[in-house]
Design a protein around this nucleic acid. Structure first.
Lengths: 228, 228
DNA sequence: AAATGTACAATTGTATACAATCATACAAAA
DNA sequence: TTTTGTATGATTGTATACAATTGTACATTT
């Protein structure tokens, strides 16, 4: 994990509440907890070896993210995410990653531009060698650089949010080396458009990049959480 | 507040935590608490006459929304939102409200379509009479109907989020009757495009609708929170 | 005077105790 | 048999006590 990621996650992987929050979120997104499951504070607390307090705080965050629905004095129920939800997020992300690329074209710094070029160079190397973990890490990083380069706190914030939602899906698609290669090539084109200061092209390419990732996922029949 | 709004906000305006959460959020968005202000749990708790527990839970939610930055064992600092943040949100919303209108065109039910027409009818009436409060309420409702009609839980969720951020700004722009009138006319065109099943036009119009609202705000020199 | 160490105060982090609310089961009455 | 009332248990809501951490002021040492 990069230095920035740690900060952006409010350093909260290192508190009990943070651990609880991330654990439960992972469990929901990966399908361990399914739609309509009831999560009880004491059960989770005992399972993770903590008291109810950090669990409650984590619940509140998950509720705000829409992953949990809390009924007062009754219980917490998993909202889960369906295949359609993931599809919708890809569409939303497509538009916003496009906007991000457009803004990045205007605001990117020399430093970030160089990091972007280096990222693509490395990605192509690891893709050719079939290094799965590195490919995923570099892919995440590529988008992270663009988020920062957009120079928009808001866009950055929300794109990271969307990213989280599809992380599980992305992991499984990128690991397939054909998609990894194609993805790299698309990254290169986006980078070149930004380098050439062609905002329209950058937006269009980033747009298509996400749509392609979506189609790839869909074609592979990948699915994350059971439809209810 | 409509029945749906109550549910969508997890009925939490009615718990202490909910009250604390909404109170602090309002105070940040309206500028009472400014960038870099430090919020102390006990101070807020005493001020609102509650214990630290609900305050802490509210803090966690505000942190997730990006309105508060928490430094472990140290304190909670207001992130606030700047004029640029609001501008960025308008751009983001423009794209997503467009997408929403597109999807609504495909998925809207007879019932929601009728509600939309009625909304516009009422809006024009109240605009002609200069009824400020009703205009705002109906405007909120117009967008809320579209969110629901999009048939996308995800898009609905996030558009509501964005909406919250610019609510303060919107309130001040809509209250000006010229903008209220123009806004109504734009609503009517969007509604007609949806009724005609013309998704492209609906998207384009919704897009422009938000951009127009943004320009109106900008021209009036409206500003919400001091730039840091 | 500058650097360092230490004690203390302030603040958040966590655990736990108690109150309020809700659902359920079961009994009593119609 | 159905309905209604009540007691009970389970669960969340809130308050508070205590632990851990951090920052600061001040004394001590060099």
């Amino acid at each position: 994990m990069t230095e920035h990621d740690r900060k952006s996650e409010s350093a909260d992987r290192y508190s009990l509440r943070g651990k609880v929050f991330h654990t439960i979120r992972e469990d929901i997104l990966s399908g361990k907890y399914k739609q309509h499951d009831e999560l009880k504070e004491v059960a989770i607390a005992e399972e993770l070896g903590v008291s109810r307090t950090p669990v409650r705080e984590a619940f509140r965050q998950l509720e705000l993210e829409g992953l949990l629905q809390m009924i007062p004095n009754k219980g917490a129920y998993v909202t889960g995410i369906t295949l359609k939800d993931i599809e919708d997020i890809y569409m939303i992300r497509s538009l916003l990653e496009g906007l991000c690329a457009r803004w990045a074209t205007k605001h990117i710094t020399q430093e970030k531009m160089e990091e972007l070029e280096e990222n693509i160079y490395l990605s192509e190397f690891h893709a050719s060698k079939g290094h799965g973990e590195q490919i995923i890490e570099l892919d995440n990083r590529f988008h992270e650089i663009l988020y920062q380069a957009s120079d928009s706190k808001m866009l950055e914030h929300w794109l990271r949010d969307f990213h989280q939602y599809v992380k599980v899906a992305r992991k499984q698609t990128l690991i397939q080396s054909e998609r990894g290669m194609a993805s790299n090539q698309e990254h290169r084109l986006i980078m070149e458009a930004i380098r050439d200061k062609d905002a329209d092209r950058a937006e269009e390419l980033a747009n298509r990049h996400i749509i392609n990732a979506y189609h790839n996922m869909k074609n592979k029949g990948l699915f994350i959480a059971k439809e209810e």
